[in-house]
Computed example of a mutant assay.
Amino acid sequence: MKTFLYNIGYFFKETGRIIRLNILSNIFSIIGTGLILFLLGLVITGSDIGNHLVNMLNEEAEINGYFTKDISDSDRNELVEKIGKIYGVRSARLVNEDEAKKKMEDILGEEAKILELFKENPFEAFVEIRINVDEMENILDNVKNMKGIEYVRDNREVLEKIKDITYAFKVLGYLLIAAVGITTLIILSHMIRQGIYNNREQINTLRLLGSPGAFIGFPYVLTGILLTLLGGILAALSVVLLINTAYEGIGSTVLFLPLPSKNDLIDKMIILIPSLSFILGLMGSLFGLSSIRKK
C-alpha cells in the first residue's frame, strides 16, 4: 500500500501521457462511450416511465363479481370482506345499484338519456375488485367458486394485454442493457489493447527493469476508467437535459399523462450512469490488460 501511494504521482503522470499520446482517438472514445451510455440512459429512463405507466394500469386492473338474486345485504357485505382477503386482491368494495347506474351514466355521457326510458333502475349491485394482474387466475378461481357469486366479469383480454406489456418492457430493457454493456466493454478493451500496443517498447523496458505487472498495468486501468467516466458524465448531463426538455414539453401538451417524478429520474441518472461507466471502465480495462501477458 505504501509503495502504491508513493507511486501515485507517477501513475497519474503516466495516465496523462497515455491519453496525450492518442489525444484525438481518446476524444472520440469519450464521445463514443458517451453516446453508448446516453442510449443506455434513454433505455433505463424509458423503461422506468413504461414500468410506471404499466404499474398504474396494473393498479387499475379490476374484475366485477355479481351476486345471486337471493343473497341478503349482510351476506353481501360479508362476501365483499372475504373477497378482499384473497391473496392478490388490492381492494374490494360494494357498488350498489345507484352507484352502478351513475357509473353507466358517466360512460354514456350525452347518450345517458336512454336510461330515462326505464321506470326502475335496471342495474344490479356488484363487488368491484382491484387485483394484481399476476395473480389473476388464482383470484378468478376463488371468486367464481364463492357461494353468493353468480357471475364474474373478468375483462380477461384487457388484463392479459396489460400483463404482456409488463413482460415486454422487462425483456426489452434487459436486452438493451446487456447489448449496451457488452458494446462498451468491447470498445474499451480494444482501446486499452491499442494503447498497450503503442507503448509496447516502454512496457518491455519496464519489464526488463523488473517492474511487476500491476505497476505496468495500473496506468492503463486508470486511463480506461477516466475516459469511460468522462463519457458517463457527458451521457448523464445529456440525459438530464433531455428529461428536463421532455417534461416541459409534455407538461404543457399532455396534462393528463401520469409520469414518474422528474426529480427522481434525474437523481437516478446522475448516480446510475457515472457509476455504470466506472464499473464498465474497470471491467473493460482489466479485460484489455490480459494482452500484456501475451506481449
Score class of each variant (00 low, 15 high):
residue 2 K to R: 15
residue 3 T to I: 08
residue 4 F to V: 15
residue 5 L to I: 08
residue 5 L to C: 01
residue 10 Y to I: 12
residue 15 T to Y: 00
residue 15 T to Q: 12
residue 17 R to K: 14
residue 20 R to V: 10
residue 25 S to A: 14
residue 28 F to G: 10
residue 37 L to N: 04
residue 38 F to K: 07
residue 38 F to Y: 13
residue 43 V to F: 00
residue 50 G to E: 05
residue 50 G to H: 09
residue 51 N to M: 04
residue 52 H to L: 02
residue 52 H to R: 08
residue 54 V to R: 12
residue 58 N to T: 11
residue 60 E to L: 01
residue 60 E to V: 10
residue 61 A to K: 06
residue 61 A to W: 03
residue 61 A to P: 05
residue 65 G to F: 08
residue 65 G to T: 15
residue 66 Y to F: 14
residue 67 F to E: 10
residue 69 K to P: 01
residue 69 K to V: 09
residue 69 K to A: 12
residue 72 S to T: 11
residue 73 D to I: 12
residue 73 D to F: 08
residue 76 R to V: 06
residue 77 N to C: 05
residue 77 N to L: 13
residue 79 L to V: 13
residue 84 G to H: 04
residue 85 K to L: 13
residue 86 I to F: 02
residue 88 G to Y: 02
residue 89 V to E: 15
residue 94 L to K: 05
residue 96 N to K: 09
residue 96 N to G: 02
residue 97 E to A: 15
residue 97 E to F: 10
residue 99 E to M: 09
residue 99 E to C: 07
residue 108 L to H: 07
residue 111 E to D: 02
residue 113 K to R: 12
residue 113 K to M: 03
residue 119 K to Q: 09
residue 121 N to G: 10
residue 127 V to Y: 11
residue 130 R to L: 09
residue 141 D to S: 13
residue 143 V to D: 05
residue 145 N to A: 03
residue 151 Y to N: 15
residue 151 Y to W: 15
residue 153 R to W: 06
residue 156 R to P: 01
residue 161 K to M: 05
residue 164 D to P: 02
residue 168 A to G: 12
residue 171 V to L: 12
residue 172 L to E: 06
residue 173 G to M: 01
residue 175 L to C: 11
residue 175 L to K: 11
residue 176 L to P: 02
residue 176 L to G: 00
residue 181 G to R: 06
residue 182 I to S: 11
residue 185 L to M: 11
residue 186 I to G: 07
residue 188 L to Y: 07
residue 189 S to N: 12
residue 193 R to T: 03
residue 196 I to W: 02
residue 198 N to E: 00
residue 201 E to P: 00
residue 202 Q to L: 02
residue 206 L to K: 01
residue 210 G to V: 13
residue 210 G to D: 00
residue 211 S to V: 15
residue 212 P to G: 05
residue 213 G to P: 00
residue 213 G to I: 00
residue 214 A to F: 14
residue 227 L to P: 04
residue 229 L to F: 12
residue 230 L to F: 15
residue 230 L to P: 04
residue 231 G to I: 04
residue 232 G to L: 09
residue 232 G to F: 04
residue 234 L to H: 02
residue 237 L to V: 13
residue 238 S to R: 08
residue 238 S to D: 10
residue 238 S to I: 11
residue 243 I to Q: 11
residue 243 I to M: 07
residue 244 N to Y: 06
residue 244 N to K: 14
residue 245 T to Y: 15
residue 247 Y to F: 10
residue 247 Y to H: 08
residue 247 Y to A: 08
residue 249 G to K: 15
residue 255 L to Y: 12
residue 255 L to M: 14
residue 259 L to K: 04
residue 261 S to N: 13
residue 262 K to W: 06
residue 263 N to C: 02
residue 263 N to V: 04
residue 267 D to V: 00
residue 268 K to E: 03
residue 268 K to N: 06
residue 270 I to T: 07
residue 275 S to T: 03
residue 281 G to Y: 01
residue 282 L to E: 04
residue 283 M to Q: 00
residue 283 M to L: 11
residue 287 F to W: 15
residue 288 G to S: 08
